[in-house]
């Protein structure tokens, strides 16, 4: 009898405590949900506009206005974004590929010739900090501007200016290869998926 009631007490205690903590975590989640979603959206919009040569406002409200005026999402079988600024038109593709530890999700911008890269941003990656994660450093991203590919890798520090090469990262061969594949994949996609005249 005593043993059984002890058991019930234990179960009830655990259940109650779980309810209390789940309640607390859920409350915090609900209170911050909107802020987190807004943060995510701002991050994405900055990353997308950062793939074009356009300079964009930093304050959240102006940024959103800017984005909504200029960016259009094309929900086709292979979705893409267009950024229109006056006479200039840019395409942005979202391409992902397997990195060393997880998926690398990338935004890549192109000129209206659908060939020349105008910028690249990694919106999600879980590569090794200090090695593969260095793909997020600005020198690495900036070197892709103006490339027409298909790209191949040269050792870090070469500072290649060829339109078909980029400096890989020493000690991060798998990550660098993944980026190479993603970029080349995007180059193929941009030339095939977007139908002529559709923008």
């Amino acid at each position: 009898m005593g043993k059984a009631s002890m058991r019930i007490k234990t179960v009830v205690f655990m259940a109650l405590l779980s309810a209390v903590f789940i309640g607390a975590v859920s409350t915090v989640h609900l209170l911050t949900k909107d802020t987190i979603m807004r943060n995510e959206a701002v991050f994405f919009r900055k990353a997308l506009l950062g793939c074009t040569p356009l300079s964009f406002p930093t304050s959240i409200k102006e940024l959103n206005n800017f984005y909504e005026n200029k960016v259009k999402y094309h929900k086709t079988a292979n979705p893409y974004y267009t950024v229109r600024d006056g006479k200039n038109l840019f395409y942005v593709l979202k391409v992902s590929g397997p990195g060393l530890w997880g998926e690398i999700v990338t935004l890549i911008g192109f000129k209206s010739d659908k060939k020349t890269i105008t910028g690249i941003n990694f919106i999600s990656q879980s590569e090794t900090p200090g090695l593969g994660a260095r793909i997020s450093e600005s020198w690495f991203k900036k070197q892709f501007i103006g490339k027409t590919g298909p790209v191949t890798m040269v050792p870090e520090g070469t500072g290649t200016v060829a339109k078909t090469q980029f400096d890989a990262i020493t000690g991060a061969t798998v990550t660098s290869t993944a980026v190479k594949d993603i970029v080349n994949n995007a180059l193929v996609k941009i030339s095939t998926v977007i139908r002529k005249g559709s923008d």
Partner: peptide, 20 residues
Amino acid sequence: TLIIASWVIIVEIMLKAQVP
């Protein structure tokens, strides 16, 4: 474990909201 996990999740959510 329940207590620790709850605090860690709360810390993670707060970081995401305040310092994304």
